[in-house]
Design a binder for these strands. Structure first.
Length: 110
DNA sequence: ACCATGACGCACA
DNA sequence: ATGTGCGCCATGG
């Protein structure tokens, strides 16, 4: 049944983003995978975050691409990099340094 | 109900 | 290694 009928897909994305600890980053694919598990949900994840009006509430800037690229940002990719660096994450040429190292494995299973 | 868009990912050349 | 094209889901008009 629809256990999540009360919340939208985007809402789940925001919840996971908030679970990301400071100094760590996650990928759209991993988030989507952690949510549904269809495999290509990361598309909807990007759309959800793009519309994310909870910007300051949700650390969406901690979400990056699976290839280590910072990806995009509604306020500007450049600004996103700046925020990541402020978190202690090293970014070089728009790419996450030690990506695997700062990568945080999201878990829906409490 | 249908069409178009989007902060991605991967396969292929 | 780099560049281009295609496909997927969910949301909005």
């Amino acid at each position: 049944m629809k256990e999540d009928s009360n919340i939208s897909f985007a809402d789940k994305v925001y919840a996971l983003c908030k679970k990301i600890p400071k100094g760590r980053v996650s990928t759209y694919k991993d988030i989507g995978n952690a949510l549904g598990g269809y495999g290509q949900v990361y598309r909807a994840v990007g759309v959800a975050l793009n519309r994310n009006s909870h910007a300051p509430i949700v650390p969406c800037h901690r979400v990056v691409n699976s290839n280590g690229n910072v990806g995009g940002f509604a306020h500007g990719t450049k600004n996103k990099i700046k925020l990541l660096k402020a978190e202690g994450i090293q970014v070089v040429n728009g790419k996450i340094k030690e990506f695997k190292k700062v990568f945080f494995i999201i878990t829906t299973s409490k």
